[in-house]
């Protein structure tokens, strides 16, 4: 399916009737926001301003929309926002910003693992999820953890270097 068609469906979702009220914690902020029955978590987050969550394939293949939902990395395009009542969500901006970057974000910049940057928020979230569970992953474990994240600019070499660098930064900061 063409990307054009997808964007059209995304815009259509923006015009829906948002009649379901949910309370949700996003990046530490308690919110009560309206959604509708079929709005995905991805469209919901972008609609209310979390544009760091990227809209890529919308079928769970590219990982650009990755967020941490109740402690687990998930593709937000494959989840209904209405099912996330009382959930905790962490997006890449919730980790840190340009003034105060998270060690993972700093590592991606330092390793030159960012080209167009579209896949980066998803990569950062996947790395965060991996390093939380396994602070010193080997290359194979990094590749496995990132196998749901596609990058169309790089050859993944810099990204894998960034994850290793992030592991060392996090070790130092701990």
């Amino acid at each position: 399916m063409s990307t054009f068609g997808k964007r059209k469906s995304y815009k259509k979702n923006l015009q829906g009737n948002f009649d379901i009220k949910i309370s949700i914690n996003i990046n530490g902020e308690e919110l009560i926001v309206n959604t509708n029955a079929t709005e995905t978590l991805l469209n919901f987050l972008r609609r209310i301003g979390y544009k760091d969550v990227k809209c890529g394939c919308e079928e769970g293949a590219c990982g650009a929309c990755l967020v941490i939902l109740d402690g687990k990395a998930v593709n937000s395009c494959q989840i209904f926002a209405a099912s996330c009542e009382n959930s905790k969500i962490l997006t890449s901006n919730g980790l840190g910003d340009s003034n105060n970057p998270h060690p993972i974000q700093k590592a991606f910049v330092d390793a030159g693992a960012v080209q167009c940057g579209f896949c980066t928020p998803g990569m950062v979230i996947a790395t965060y999820d991996l390093l939380n569970k396994n602070p010193q992953p080997d290359e194979e474990q990094i590749k496995n953890a990132l196998n749901g994240n596609l990058c169309r600019c790089t050859g993944y070499v810099k990204i894998i270097e960034a994850v290793k660098l992030a592991a060392s930064y996090m070790k130092k900061s701990n």
Partner: peptide, 9 residues
């Protein structure tokens, strides 16, 4: 089956 984040769902 699928990718790591999808297997979380």
């Amino acid at each position: 089956a699928a990718s790591y984040p999808l297997r979380n769902r």
